[in-house]
Structure formats: C-alpha cells, structure tokens
Simulated assay, not measured.
Amino acid sequence: MDIRQIANLAEISGGYDAVFCDVWGVLHNGVRSWPAAWKALAAAREAGKAVVLITNAPRPAGPVSEQLASLGVPDEAYDDIVTSGDVTRALISEGARLVFHIGPDRDTSLYDGLDVELVEEREASAVVCTGLFDDNTETPADYGELLQRLRARNLPFICANPDIVVERGDRLIYCAGALAKDYGLMGGRTLIAGKPHAPIYREAMARAAKVLGREVGRDRVLAIGDGLTTDVKGAMDYGIDLLFISDGIHAREYGTPGNPDPEKLAAHLDGFGAHPVATMKNLA
C-alpha cells in the first residue's frame, strides 16, 4: 500500500471544512507542546476551517484548555474542545447515583454538577474509571484483585478515557482504557463514549457546525491522530478521512521515534485495515 507523505497540513486541508485533531501525542506529550503543530491548526482556522480538538482526556474541556495553555498552546489554535470526559458525563448521569471512582483526585471535576455521590467500593452501584490512582508507579497488574471484586458484584464499569497508554515525555503510562480492557476480559460490562466510539464524534460534528454556522458533511471532515485503536479506528468507523501522525505512541513498532521505516509503516497500517489520506511524522 502506497501512502502519501506530506510535509504540512496545508497540502491537504483545502478539501475540508473541519479538522478534528487529537491532543495528546499530536499537540503535546504531557511535558511539552510542539509549536509547529498548533501553528498548523491556527493556519487552518485562518483559512476558514473549524478546528475542534477531540481528546480522550477524562476531564471536561475547561481543565484541558488550562493544561494546553500551561504547555504553551494558545487559544487561537482551536475553536473548541470535546473531551471523553464531556461525553462520559452523559453516561454517568444516566447510570447509578452511588459511584466508586478509580483514578487520581485531579479528575474529580468530571462529576461537577452531576447528581452522583462518590462512595467507597463496598457501597457503590457503579464504577467510573478516569485512570490509575498513580500512573507514575502503577500498572494494570496492580488492579487485578480490585477488578475481580467489582466483577463479582457485576458493577457497570464506565471508562472515561479509552486510551490504553499515552506518552508522558519519553515514557508510556497506562490509562483507564487498560483497566476497562481487563474488566471486559473478565466478562464485565464496560460503557465508553470517547474515541473510537461514536458519541464523541457526534458531539465534535455539532461543535464544528456551530463554529461554521451550518451543517458539515462527514466527507468534509479531516481527523488527525496517532493512535490506532482510538484515532484511526474512530475515524474509520465514523466515516471521516484521517491524517496519521507516525511519530506517536506506535513509533517504535515501525522504526524509531522520528525515523519511521516507510515499508514497515505501510504494513503496520495495512494490517490494521487503515487507509489514511496521508501521513506525517509530526503535525506541521
């Protein structure tokens, strides 16, 4: 499979009305941002495109915007943000009121304004997972016994961040999706609204239409991302085009960071059934 490789977003963005861009792995790595990436998005906005950031962050858009600003990504780089946390709030509000939270305290803004009570494990009627309690030191293996107890009670498991891993600097850290995967393998019921699932894309489409003042066809939307099971699968399932960023979480699977092997990259994408309209090492 021949894949078009481009040097800058402007080479292909002219055919689209809206851009849905991933955040972690494309705009930043949790430690620093990449100016060329946000400048490319700002240029797309100046050209009349609606730029919506679409991220599996388990927090609402406000805290994500604050994090972006702290990393040097200015407001002019995007029109709106849709997070997995935003669309997960609907799942939480539709479920049981007594919730056991798995994840760091910094994610509890997810529940602001919702009619739920955070309780201890033994009192819960549902589980909401935003991540590991301490993703610097823990792995999914540390949660085996806890997940077995929750599964024994058949509690629904709402996953606020479908990512399995993300890069933090030069390290890969585990996310809520890793625990949801393990819970599902135990036969537990998992509920997920973030990428690659449709709710987050439907919301992004609505936000883009609001920016442009008109409806947007799926054939006029370009997604940008680096994750196969989230960004790539999400775009494929929703029927929108994809620009694949190769120097992301999968970089070591088809070369070394910053130096992908074109043949291995093509085989990697083809093996997943993915056919992006183009690839770039990094967004620019």
Rank of each mutant, 00 (worst) to 15 (best):
E94I: 12
L212W: 11
E215R: 15
Q5V: 13
V87W: 09
G72V: 08
D182V: 08
S33A: 10
A40C: 07
S70Q: 12
G72P: 00
N154D: 15
M205L: 14
G273E: 04
I192K: 06
D134I: 00
Y143C: 00
L269A: 04
P257M: 08
E253N: 11
T55K: 02
N154G: 09
T130E: 10
T137Y: 08
Y174L: 01
I54R: 09
T230P: 05
I240P: 03
E263R: 10
L185S: 09
G85N: 03
N161L: 07
C175W: 02
D115L: 13
E117V: 12
L68S: 02
D261V: 01
V277F: 05
G258Q: 07
A126G: 13
L222V: 09
D135N: 13
A266F: 06
P257G: 10
D134K: 00
V116M: 07
G217L: 14
N282C: 13
D80Y: 06
A50M: 02
G62R: 09
A90G: 15
I240R: 00
G15T: 12
S13I: 13
V23E: 03
A124W: 11
N136G: 12
K264F: 11
T88C: 14
F100D: 08
A208I: 09
H28S: 02
V165R: 14
F133P: 05
L110C: 02
L118M: 08
L212H: 13
V216T: 02
E76L: 09
I240H: 01
T88N: 12
G177H: 05
A193P: 03
I200W: 01
L53H: 01
G234H: 02
D226A: 01
A124M: 03
K49C: 03
G25E: 00
D86N: 15
H101Q: 04
A36T: 11
L53S: 03
G271D: 09
V119H: 05
G271I: 11
D17V: 01
A160R: 00
T279S: 14
T88K: 05
K181M: 14
Q5G: 08
L41A: 02
L110S: 01
I240D: 07
T229V: 15
T108A: 11
G131S: 07
L98Q: 12
T279V: 15
D105K: 07
I240C: 08
D79K: 02
T279H: 13
V31S: 14
L27Q: 07
D105M: 07
L91R: 09
L283K: 09
V19C: 09
A193F: 04
A37D: 04
A176T: 01
N154S: 15
R151F: 03
I192S: 00
T88R: 03
P104M: 06
P60F: 00
P199V: 05
L118D: 07
F100T: 03
E263W: 10
F133A: 10
A10V: 06
R59V: 07
L114T: 12
G72S: 05
R45V: 03
G30S: 09
N56Y: 08
D86H: 13
Q67A: 11
P199L: 12
E253F: 04
V52L: 04
